[in-house]
Design a protein around this nucleic acid. Structure first.
Length: 508
RNA sequence: GGCGGCAUAGCCAAGUGGUAAGGCAGCGGCCUGCAAAGCCGUUAUUCGUCAGUUCGAAUCUGACUGCCGCCUCCA
């Protein structure tokens, strides 16, 4: 199967040919940790997490590197405003980022280097570029001369001249050309600094990525990824640096995902339109957020709306409902995928064709319907051919959901659709069971009015009931239990019923 | 102004030359005392508009309309 991806460099969908057979080196630009992570960061992480899982499932030896930029103007400003060290700020937001990505079931990359751990490598690169005549010292800083790098502007589709619109730039008399950019920034007083052959300072924004990707993956590596907003200047400048230092571009293929938008504008911290991810994850299941982030082709912008997340939550509940049925029917399914299966073929064809997540997802939903039908059809016959093929399809389905998409990794029992549907006042288990028992008594007496009213009281308090034969299962947040018909009430249930009385329960 | 992208049902969204996937919501039915879950059926003679190429176009070409991104903070 050919892996085909849209390469920003050529603007075409191309075959992905590993530079070294069986291996893939991937570098993704991670966050600058100066503020709380938002959905845009999550999209980047989740998209490349699924690519990584998919490539590994195909048998590639993948090395995924995602950096953390822990030194930059905004971190410094924030630290100064808070009267603290830049490290404190960077650590705080990196911890938040890591926690949120873990909640989203994003696998840790193989390396997550921080810029400040590679200052020495950055300096070596700067020295190299100076030696090669592509960089120049000016004032306390070192700049890269973009005119000296062949193909500058090719990635972003612009040329050196005229570049850029000077009216938009601050006056920077140290530069020979307005498009030149700092490799090493001479430090101002009060800023964090490192000593260097060019005086105290810190690395420019772009140099760290060249340093870390070269150190961890070597140049060139297979895939460089990131948000589309990084194409210019960041990735353009990375290419220039790599040419200046090594005479070759850093990566064979450039993958860029689209932006998460809010009300037709890009989601951005600077625009103040980004809901904090941590809050979002309190309202919606993390796996639903994952499904949402994978619901549209990765290259296109993804509009964020509440209703889209609600929809993804409904989808997730449906997938877990099937997972529950499968667990009941087959127990724990073999985690090993069947590469020959029709399902895997159809699913992987979608992912291999420029990461068509939405197409892959549709295959899984189709299969979910088929599995439900098959389970309906085979309840009476657990030994027929249909039962066996259903079991094997079920194993593949579960595998793809869990190991490739990174959803359905909890046991079906642990997933709680009610938790994210109803915001309920807390009832104690004893109180709930008292009401359930009372409702069962009413049902036994065919007193449907009372039974329905009690169901109403429970539902208003966020308790979900499910009747099955002689048992009633209840679920309230993370608590659950069952009551078998004929159970006795605890003392005091009357009081509970009284205290929970609600206008709509007056028929009780 | 320069460069790039997008327009498919009530909503979300695949499909890049062979006759419109999937999801959500809705509706009808089965099941259930009621409900939940599940299942079945149903929802675009049509893909922003106009013209062209072709036996054949949502898919290719041109024009037009609308929306968005980048142009040194950016995932």
């Amino acid at each position: 199967m050919n892996l085909r991806f849209h390469n920003t460099l050529s603007r075409k969908v191309e075959d992905l040919r590993p530079l070294e057979a069986g291996r893939l080196g991937i570098y993704v630009c991670g966050p600058t940790v100066y503020d709380a992570p938002h959905l845009g960061h999550a999209r980047s992480a989740v998209v490349f997490d699924v690519f990584r899982r998919f490539f590994e499932a195909l048998g590639y030896n993948v090395t995924l590197v995602r950096n953390i930029t822990d030194i930059d103007d905004k971190i410094i400003l924030k630290a100064q405003a808070a009267g603290t060290d830049y490290r404190t700020i960077a650590e705080r937001y990196q911890n938040q980022y890591d926690a949120v990505m873990a909640a989203l079931n994003v696998r840790a990359p193989h390396a997550a280097p921080r810029a400040t751990a590679y200052i020495g490598t950055c300096q070596e690169l700067v020295a190299r570029m100076l030696r090669n005549g592509h960089a120049y010292r000016s004032g306390k800083s070192v700049y890269l001369a973009i005119h000296s790098c062949r193909d500058y502007g090719r990635l972003s589709g612009r040329s050196c001249d005229p570049l850029p619109d000077i009216s938009r730039c601050r006056e920077q008399p140290e530069k020979r050309h307005p498009g030149d950019f700092a490799l090493w920034k001479g430090s101002k007083t009060g800023e964090p600094q490192w000593s260097s052959p060019w005086g105290p300072g810190r690395p420019g924004w772009h140099i760290e990525c060249t340093a870390m990707s070269h150190a961890l993956l070597n140049t060139p590596f297979d895939i460089h990824g990131g948000g589309r907003d990084l194409i210019f200047p960041h990735h353009e400048n990375e290419i220039a640096q790599s040419i200046a230092a090594f005479g070759k571009p850093p990566a064979a293929m450039w993958l860029h995902h689209g932006m998460v938008t809010v009300g037709q504008a890009k989601m951005a911290k600077s625009k103040g339109n980004a809901p904090p991810l941590e809050a979002l994850l309190q309202t919606y299941p993390p796996e639903a957020v994952r499904l949402f982030l994978l619901s549209r082709h990765y290259r296109r912008d993804l509009p964020y709306t509440e209703s889209a997340l609600q929809e993804s939550t409904a989808q997730l509940n449906r997938l877990y409902a099937l997972a529950r049925r499968l667990q009941a029917a087959f127990g724990n399914l073999s985690p090993t995928p069947c590469r020959q299966s029709f399902l895997w073929q159809r699913f992987s064809r979608n992912l291999a064709s420029d990461g068509n997540f939405a197409g892959g997802l549709s295959v899984l939903f189709e299969t979910a319907r088929d599995l439900n039908r098959a389970l309906d059809a085979t309840v009476a016959n657990r030994y027929g051919a249909l039962w066996r093929t259903t079991r094997s399809t079920a194993a593949d389905w579960r595998y793809i959901c869990r190991d490739i998409l990174g959803v359905l990794h909890m046991t079906a029992e642990a997933h709680d659709p009610a938790r994210h549907k109803i915001q309920a006042p807390v009832l104690s288990p004893a109180a709930i069971e008292g009401l359930v028992i009372r409702r069962q008594a009413a049902r036994k007496n065919l007193d449907w009015g009372t039974a329905d009213a009690l169901r109403g009281v429970l539902e208003e308090n966020g308790v979900r009931l499910q009747d099955k034969n002689h048992e009633t299962f209840w679920q309230h947040g993370k608590q659950r239990g069952k009551i078998t018909a004929g159970a006795q009430c605890d003392d005091g249930f009357e009081t509970i019923c009284q205290s929970n009385r609600h206008p709509s329960t007056k028929t009780v």
